[in-house]
Each structure stands twice: as structure tokens, then as C-alpha cells.
């Protein structure tokens, strides 16, 4: 197992290298003048063509591909990720500012997904093929078919526009004032909900939760449909296993069969999927955060991709790739720990 972990960790730099190289190669398809568009959003600031040339030189936009890449990697070695014109701050600062917000969102999204998804999946499999199963399935498929941006805008419309319950953003202005200014509010984890509890500020805790519910629903409704499918087929599979039949034949109560015998084993693959889902959600935050103007990584990544801000895109992609490799590793290990039959090779 240890050698497996080491091997996987050795691959990590390779993947990170590959990711940066790939994105950089994509951006080198652009001419220097096109890349200037990242820094200039209105030609009126260029008094004359010389100004354009000065800017191209200043930002090393005319470096040919390998040289530009080497220049970028060199500054990366000094832990300098460069400047993000999209975020108007250094890329590293931008990541530090947005990462906790996104993690908080993903963390809270995964909870209802696991609860609702698994629970409905089990019901669906127990009532295999009868009306309830079909209804749940079709509802899941309809959910799956709803584009996130339509769904998100609807949530915003109903719960903020009409009911006024779930405001967009991350905090109300009064709470922002307390959280961002002065020394009275201590940042321990940068998860605002948790920090608020640690500071004993229940009002801020509620404010943060209110802002989170909308994005959580939007981010997770597709995932629970997916988890439901996995749970359902895994349960169906398990329910047909010999030991379940034996249990049933022995006259064990049906409820007990399902909840104690079957569910336990059926959930092993579900754990894996749920783990990977957290990582996938990191990619899925782009639209959710855009709709709710939730100030996280996804919102930023979307605007930097549009503005061809390659430093920021690479920064985001590196972080994502890192999380992905580590996350997969953790999932594999925990899988091996839960199910002794699995051997990591």
C-alpha cells in the first residue's frame, strides 16, 4: 500500500507539469496582440501603436512558446504565480481569497447529496420497478436534464426575488463589515460559518447559511440524481447476493435485511463515488457561482477564461489538478480500508 501511495504521489508532478504545459500551449495559439486583450479592455487607453508595443514587451506577450513557458515556470519556481488582470490582484492572493469560499460551498453541498441521494436510492431499489421507483427515477432524470443555469436563476427568482429568503453573494453587507474589518472577528478556518460559531456570532452564522442554501441546492441537485443511480444499482446488485437470500430464507425481518445487511455492503462503491463527487463539484462550481455571484474560484475561473487571462486559468487548473490527484488517492485508500477484498497495486 505504501508503495502504491508513493507511486501515485510521484505521478503528481508529472500531471501538474502536463496541465500547465497543455494550457500554455493552448494560449500560445494566440498572437501577442490578441494576448494584449487580457490587459486592455478598451483601445482608448492606447494613445498610439507604440503604447501597444510597450505593453506587449512589458508583459512578455511576444515571447515564443517555449521561452514564454520557461519564463513562466521560472517565476513559478520562486512561488510567483504572476498577476491576474481578471481578479486585479496576484494570482496567489486570488486563490487564497477564493478557495475557502468554494470549499465551504462544496463541503455543505455534499451533505444533502449524500443524505438524499443514498436514501432515495435505497428506496428506489427496494421498490424496484414499481410506481415509487419509477417516479423517483424519472424525477432524477428530469433533474439531471435541467441545465444548471436555468435552475439556478429559478432558485434565485423564487427564493430571493419573491420570498426574499436566500440572498446572493456570500454575506450581507452588515456582516461583511464585521467579518472583513476590525479585529473583533477572528479567522480560524476561513469557513465563515465555522468562524462565526467560533467567534460566538450566531447572527453571522445564520447570514452565511442563508447565502449558502441557494448555491448548495443548485450545485447539488444534479449530483444527488447521479448518486441515486449508483446507490440503486449497487443495492439491486447486493439484494440478489446469496447471503441476502439466506438471510431472507432464515426469516430475518425485511427491514433489517435491507438496512443492516444489504445497505452496509451496497454503500461501499457509493463511498467511492461520493468522494469523487466532491472533486467533480469543484469543477461544477463555475456556473453556480456565476449565477449567485458567490465569490469563489469558479466565478473567477469563468471570467479569467473569457478574458484569456492565462495566469489565472493555470492557477485554477493547477489547484484543481492537485486536489483531484490527492482526492482520488484518498478515495482509493479509504476504499481499500473499508473493503478488505480490494488490494491496491
Amino acid at each position: 500500500m505504501l508503495s502504491y501511495i508513493i507511486r501515485r504521489l510521484l505521478i503528481l508532478p508529472l500531471i501538474l507539469f502536463g496541465v500547465t504545459f497543455l494550457i500554455f500551449a493552448l494560449f500560445s495559439l494566440l498572437s501577442p496582440m490578441e494576448r494584449l486583450a487580457t490587459y486592455i479592455n478598451n483601445p482608448s487607453v492606447l494613445k498610439n501603436p507604440q503604447a501597444a508595443q510597450r505593453l506587449i514587451e512589458k508583459y512578455h506577450l511576444d515571447d515564443p512558446f517555449p521561452a514564454g513557458y520557461i519564463y513562466w515556470v521560472q517565476s513559478l519556481m520562486r512561488l510567483d504565480f504572476g498577476w491576474s488582470p481578471t481578479a486585479n490582484q496576484p494570482v496567489w492572493e486570488a486563490i487564497k481569497q477564493r478557495f475557502p469560499a468554494t470549499m465551504e460551498l462544496v463541503f455543505y453541498s455534499i451533505i444533502p447529496v449524500i443524505l438524499v441521494g443514498i436514501w432515495l436510492g435505497v428506496i428506489s431499489s427496494v421498490h424496484h420497478n414499481d410506481l415509487l421507483d419509477q417516479t423517483i427515477r424519472v424525477t432524477a432524470i428530469i433533474g439531471w436534464s435541467l441545465p444548471t443555469f436555468i435552475f439556478g436563476l429559478l432558485v434565485l427568482f423564487i427564493f430571493y426575488g419573491i420570498l426574499g429568503w436566500l440572498p446572493p453573494g456570500r454575506l450581507s453587507t452588515w456582516a461583511q463589515y464585521i467579518v472583513y474589518t476590525g479585529d473583533s472577528f477572528k479567522h480560524y478556518t476561513h469557513f465563515i460559518t465555522i468562524d462565526a460559531l467560533l467567534n460566538g456570532r450566531l447572527d453571522i452564522f445564520w447570514d452565511a447559511i442563508k447565502h449558502l442554501i441557494g448555491p448548495i441546492i443548485t450545485l447539488s441537485y444534479i449530483s444527488w440524481a447521479y448518486l441515486l443511480r449508483i446507490t440503486r444499482s449497487s443495492m439491486l446488485d447486493t439484494l440478489r447476493k446469496d447471503y441476502i437470500r439466506t438471510a431472507r430464507a432464515k426469516g430475518v425481518e425485511e427491514k433489517k435485511v435491507i438496512h443492516q445487511h444489504a445497505q452496509k455492503n451496497a454503500l461501499i462503491p457509493v463511498v467511492t463515488v461520493a468522494g469523487m463527487m466532491i472533486i467533480q463539484m469543484l469543477g461544477g462550481v463555475v456556473i453556480t457561482e456565476t449565477v449567485f455571484t458567490y465569490p469563489g474560484l469558479g466565478y473567477w475561473a469563468a471570467s479569467s477564461a473569457q478574458q484569456l487571462d492565462y495566469g489565472s486559468v493555470i492557477g485554477f487548473a493547477l489547484l484543481f489538478a492537485f486536489m483531484m490527484v490527492i482526492g482520488n488517492l484518498v478515495v482509493d485508500i479509504s476504499y481499500a480500508l473499508i473493503d478488505p477484498r480490494v488490494k491496491l497495486e
Partner: peptide, 19 residues
């Protein structure tokens, strides 16, 4: 793995913006 490590939507956005 490398292709999978870039979030799909962001990668697609980058490529469409460039092309």
C-alpha cells in the same frame, strides 16, 4: 489523466475563447 485534471467547463471555455 492530464486532460481529466482540467475542469471540463473551464477547459472548453478557454479553447472556445481562443479559437
Amino acid at each position: 489523466d492530464i486532460f481529466l485534471s482540467i475542469p471540463f467547463l473551464v477547459a472548453a471555455m478557454v479553447l472556445t475563447t481562443i479559437l
